[in-house]
């Protein structure tokens, strides 16, 4: 009986939702970071040669932010 009680506490629905929401934001955040790292370094490289590319570089760098925004939306839907 004690085990069932412990399991109920461990796998509490609200807790699982919170973990799911956390994972959704956390993992998508990591994915965005990895994508932005590559694009950001490339943008810096292009800007080092041609300063006029700053605007384009900035826009391209933040495009992967959409991934974490989707993660946030999913997290909000879950919770």
């Amino acid at each position: 009986m004690a085990d069932v009680a412990t399991a109920t506490v461990l796998f509490d629905a609200a807790g699982m939702k919170a973990i799911g929401a956390g994972l959704a934001v956390g993992l998508t955040g990591l994915a965005s970071a990895i994508a932005e790292k590559e694009i950001g370094t490339a943008a810096i490289g292009a800007m080092a040669e041609n300063e006029a590319l700053f605007g384009k570089g900035l826009i391209l760098t933040v495009i992967p932010e959409t991934i974490v925004i989707f993660g946030l939306v999913v997290a909000l839907l879950i919770s």
């Binding site: 370094t41 490339a42 943008a43 810096i44 490289g45 292009a46 080092a48 040669e49």
Partner: peptide
């Protein structure tokens, strides 16, 4: 970084 810079 290198390829973007070389492209420019």
């Amino acid at each position: 970084y290198t390829t973007a810079r070389v492209h420019a």
